[in-house]
Computed example of a mutant assay.
Amino acid sequence: MIGKSVATATPAGAALPGIKAPPIAHARFAIGDVVRHRLFEFRGVIFDVDPVFANSEEWYEAIPEDIRPDKEQPFYHLFAENAESSYIAYVSQHNLVRDDSEEMIDHPAIDGLFDSYADGRYRLRREHRH
């Protein structure tokens, strides 16, 4: 083949020499699940999932070292609430547990993304507007 280059393919999942593949993290929770923090008194509904840490280094370093989570795990965006307020939280999988209270989350942004609540989960709207 004159004038054409031939590329070689690496089989899916095969590591390239000298390159270490990161571990594959599996999300334990899904969008719409209601969860609570295992250390702090708040709960929330998941509205987005990052397969690994995807926030700023400044945010990460602000977490006390003795409770700072590993970056190589799923991180969840939550419409969160505690006894005083509603807010958005970013939490590692290690720090979340399923909330089995069957109580709805009282967050003003929920209605914009979810349309119903049943069996401990919120259901995404078929379409939403910004």
Results as ranks from 00 to 15, higher is better:
69 P>F: 07
54 A>V: 01
62 A>F: 11
58 E>I: 08
117 Y>R: 00
103 E>A: 12
76 Y>R: 06
88 I>S: 12
107 H>N: 13
50 D>A: 04
47 F>M: 05
114 F>W: 14
47 F>V: 01
59 W>E: 09
46 I>P: 00
101 S>M: 06
109 A>G: 08
61 E>T: 09
45 V>A: 09
91 V>W: 03
108 P>E: 11
61 E>R: 15
86 S>W: 08
68 R>G: 07
68 R>T: 13
113 L>C: 11
85 S>C: 10
102 E>Y: 04
69 P>I: 03
84 E>M: 09
52 V>Q: 03
44 G>V: 01
61 E>I: 08
44 G>T: 01
123 R>S: 14
118 A>H: 10
84 E>K: 08
58 E>K: 07
121 R>P: 01
87 Y>T: 03
83 A>L: 10
94 H>E: 10
67 I>R: 15
104 M>R: 15
72 E>Y: 13
117 Y>M: 07
61 E>L: 15
109 A>H: 08
84 E>N: 14
120 G>R: 00
76 Y>G: 11
89 A>S: 12
61 E>P: 07
66 D>E: 13
106 D>H: 12
68 R>N: 07
85 S>D: 14
122 Y>W: 11
98 R>W: 07
90 Y>S: 01
43 R>Y: 04
105 I>P: 02
53 F>G: 01
84 E>Y: 07
104 M>T: 15
108 P>H: 09
80 A>M: 00
123 R>M: 08
78 L>I: 10
98 R>S: 06
101 S>G: 09
70 D>I: 05
106 D>T: 12
94 H>N: 05
108 P>I: 04
87 Y>D: 02
88 I>Q: 11
87 Y>K: 04
85 S>L: 13
102 E>S: 06
87 Y>C: 06
48 D>R: 11
122 Y>H: 03
94 H>M: 08
113 L>H: 08
94 H>T: 13
53 F>Y: 14
60 Y>I: 11
75 F>A: 05
74 P>H: 10
78 L>H: 08
112 G>Q: 08
106 D>P: 00
75 F>P: 00
77 H>K: 10
52 V>D: 01
54 A>I: 05
114 F>P: 03
85 S>R: 15
120 G>P: 01
103 E>K: 03
